[in-house]
Design a protein around this nucleic acid. Structure first.
Length: 792
DNA sequence: GAGTTTGAAACT
DNA sequence: CAGTTTCAAACTC
């Protein structure tokens, strides 16, 4: 088994991603969620980031048979195709891909002691969902009494679970399940079934929890639990015209301190997700979409959706991390999962913290994966896209709000990489398991109860090809992390990593490396050219990308970058590997620059990597935007460090504040600053600048209009000239005509001189002659006779 | 376009 | 952390 994400690499991930514990803590504590994760509990050295991944979702392919484990600690779903589905009780939903048909059972001890659990979830390709929910405290042997068992009954899928009180919960699947999985039932799944409806993505119910109280188990015992909903959308084969989408909604009640039992059931809004809300703790929804292609291998054992990098060859790690204010009532995470052709795209979406009901769910279509970009209010969120190229089979997109990069991670399931340990290290280690509930909280924390799909900004879907699909966001620059050659290990904060950064996998973990590419690459890769890129297992494919890439987003949106591309740098001594270089500082490769001895390109990954590391060593936030939001409550932007101007008065572009068109703030250490609101100099300058800008705009408009007119005139006149139908008068003023006219005028001048006539008379004669010449020219033009010499 | 000025980054 | 040097952009002529 190969670790997709090595421990080292995990350490490289941004704090927003990695710090799931902290995120979880937000659920528990009103502290900043991005705070450093607790280190009290040691982790195994080989435990990668998965242990801190907030969400691990396991999805079973269509042909999978379910073998549900009743273990309270981890829910598992082993399929005949080798796909293993794990749903950690702590909130981790693990999708692991197995190359063998061996069903994996949870070997680790109970993870949580007090949290309700979803023991297992199964999402066959035929729109089926199996959920085992174990709310009761796990038994010592890892199995809770009355473990949830899933049994298909004909066309029905039973999702069973036990409440905290041991009351079984059963979820019924729709009759559309024509492929009942061979599910092993270890408990009484039929006892007191919870009503769960199946909802389809097209608005048809796939799975809906009709009763929050039921799902939460006995209200008496789960009163303080917070209901959380997880939705998994499964996409039918691409070739299938019908938008049949199966969605998995996992509603989990989590312990919530001191909450009253007045949990109320909130109807699903979009018809895609069922939402339950409690007065004190808003429901949270996680949506996971899966796109299933018609490719045979898709349904084969090798086609798997993996969302967890836990020591699984093919993993998708859902890392969500954006900061959110504690008072944010609702958050939603949308996780579209694209499994077409063995490729998977995972998108984590987070709504704005302050937005009460801003959530989105992916709208996967038959052909494309529509990673949800931003939910309303996430305008400032930034993303990272990690695209591993070494493994073209899987694509994982991770949108990380709070980071200005956009990662897409491509993960490939490799043979021999089975999922030996159910739940991986996350579940086997009790100490780690403590953090899992937190992870779930983190994921859930971001979820918002179902929101209308309209509120979601989605990227225009691209045709689903065999290549990885990359979705770009409209507002945020994106970065790619693509595999590269092995390079010295670095462990910078990914949030600060500029594009082009190469992240190497753990030793012996495989040949996967990651290079952060400029955001435009994502767009480029999304194009057909990306097929070549992803289809190749070598990093050399990245080279053409660079040549094709349109660089220079420079922190601007795509439209902005297009309209105002970054200036090329002129570095001569820094090799473009210092922050002196704007390209490098902005996390971009040099492209069409005037730099000398440039190392800021893919050809010098190693050097660039070292340079990035060096910069990050000096300043961990070296690659983060300097212009950020001001203090809380302030709407104006402000420089993160402030300027240090001495002579410019902060009214020249030397000043970074002025250059960014922001006022100097109290953190600036400038001298003689005139860049403040009431500064008359600044106002004058601004007025001048505005006036100049207006003039420029007017001139530009005039030029444009004139150009248009000329173009139009030429367009209209050209056919007349070429058609021989006649020439316009001006066309007769040829060189020969002009010369002839001049000769006529000179002749008049000579005549007047010979006659000793005064100058005034001479001029009059010349002008009269000129008039005659003009009349002749016009006359000739009127006759439309070409090439007719004008005789004086 | 060459030279100067400027301030951030890098260095000590 | 402060002072100095390096560097490339901004600016001037």
């Amino acid at each position: 088994m190969m670790d997709v994400v090595s421990p080292e690499l995990n350490s490289l991930l941004p704090d927003e991603i990695m710090d799931t514990e902290a995120i979880a803590m937000e659920e528990e504590l009103p502290t900043e969620h991005l705070s450093a994760p607790p280190q009290s509990e040691p982790e195994p050295p080989q435990v990668p980031m998965e242990t801190e991944v907030p969400e691990i979702v396991s999805l079973c392919p269509a042909t999978t048979s379910m073998q549900m484990s009743s273990a309270s600690t981890d829910a598992q779903c082993s399929t005949s195709s080798g796909t293993q589905l794990l749903l950690a009780p702590s909130g981790l939903i693990t999708v692991t891909t197995m190359t063998t048909t061996t069903s994996t059972k949870t070997t680790g001890p109970a993870v949580t002691q007090n949290l309700p659990k979803i023991s297992s979830v199964t999402v066959p390709a035929n729109h089926q969902l199996i959920i085992n929910k174990v709310a009761g405290a796990p038994a010592a042997d890892g199995k809770s009494p009355g473990a949830a068992v899933l049994k298909p009954e004909g066309q029905k899928l039973l999702v069973a679970g036990l409440s905290k009180t041991g009351q079984p919960i059963m979820l019924a699947l729709p009759h559309t399940w024509n492929k009942p999985a061979t599910t092993q039932c270890t408990g009484d799944a039929k006892a007191q079934p919870t009503q769960i409806k199946m909802l389809t993505s097209v608005g048809k119910p796939v799975i809906a929890v009709s009763s929050a109280s039921q799902l939460m188990g006995s209200s008496t015992t789960l009163q303080a639990q917070q209901l959380k909903t997880l939705q998994i959308t499964k996409k039918p084969p691409v070739s299938t015209a019908g938008p049949m989408i199966t969605k998995l909604i996992i509603t989990k009640a989590l312990n919530n301190k001191g909450l009253s039992s007045t949990a109320s059931v909130a109807p699903v809004v979009t018809g895609r997700v069922v939402t339950q809300s409690t007065p004190l703790t808003p429901p949270r929804t996680i949506t996971i979409g899966e796109t299933v292609s018609t490719v045979p291998q898709h349904t084969s054992g090798n086609s798997k959706v993996a969302i967890s990098p836990l020591k699984s060859p093919s993993k998708l790690t859902v890392v969500s991390v954006a900061s959110q204010s504690p008072n944010s009532p609702q958050k939603s995470v949308t996780l579209p999962l694209n499994v077409a052709l063995g490729q998977q795209i995972l998108t984590v979406q987070q709504s704005a913290a302050t937005s009460p009901a801003k959530a989105g769910t992916s709208q996967p279509t038959a052909q494309t994966v529509k990673p949800v970009q931003t939910v309303g209010g996430v305008g400032t969120s930034q993303f990272k896209t990690i695209i591993p190229l070494a493994t073209p089979h899987n694509v994982q997109q991770i949108q990380v709000p709070g980071s200005r990069f956009h990662y897409v991670r491509l993960v490939t399931a490799t043979t021999g990489s089975t999922t030996p340990q159910s739940g991986g290290s996350t579940n086997t280690n009790p100490s780690i398991q403590q953090a899992k509930p937190v992870m779930m909280n983190a994921a859930v924390r971001m979820s918002v109860p179902i929101v209308p799909a309209q509120s979601i900004k989605q990227v225009v879907p691209k045709p689903l090809t065999s290549a990885a699909q990359v979705v770009t966001t409209s507002q945020t620059p994106q970065r790619l992390i693509m595999p590269a050659t092995h390079l010295p290990q670095i462990q910078p904060n990914l949030t600060s990593l500029p594009p082009g950064t190469v992240l190497t996998p753990a030793h012996g973990s495989g040949n996967m490396g990651y290079a952060v590419l400029p955001a435009p690459y994502v767009t480029q890769i999304a194009q057909p050219t990306f097929v070549t890129l992803t289809s190749s297992s070598t990093f050399s494919t990245a080279t053409p990308i660079q040549t094709q890439a349109r660089l220079s987003l420079n922190g601007l949106s795509t439209s902005e970058a297009t309209s105002r591309p970054r200036k090329p740098c002129n570095c001569t001594r820094s090799q473009c590997l210092k922050l002196y270089c704007d390209c490098f500082a902005n996390g971009e490769f040099c492209n069409n620059c005037n730099c000398v001895n440039c190392f800021n390109n893919l050809d010098h990954e190693s050097e660039r990597l070292k340079a990035i590391k060096s910069c990050l060593d000096r300043n961990p936030v070296a690659f983060k935007p300097k212009i950020g939001k001001g203090k809380q409550g302030e709407s104006d932007r402000r420089h993160s460090k402030g300027c240090n101007c001495k002579k410019s008065g902060c009214l020249k572009n030397y000043c970074e504040c002025y250059e960014a068109k922001i006022m100097c703030s109290s953190i600036c250490k400038c001298m003689g600053c005139k860049n403040f609101e009431e500064s008359p100099e600044r106002k004058t300058l601004m007025h001048l600048a505005d006036a100049a800008e207006v003039r420029v705009q007017q001139q530009t408009a005039a030029k444009t209009k004139l150009s248009s007119q000329i173009s139009d005139l030429l367009t209209r006149t050209t056919p007349a000239v070429t058609s021989g139908g006649g020439k316009l008068p001006y066309t007769f003023v040829t060189k020969e005509v002009a010369e002839a006219t001049c000769d006529c005028l000179l002749e008049q001048a000579e005549q007047a001189e010979l006659n000793n006539q005064p100058q005034a008379v001479a001029e009059r004669l010349i002008l009269e002659e000129f008039g005659r010449c003009l009349r002749r020219i016009v006359s000739f033009a009127g006759k439309a006779k070409t090439d007719c010499p004008i005789s004086c």
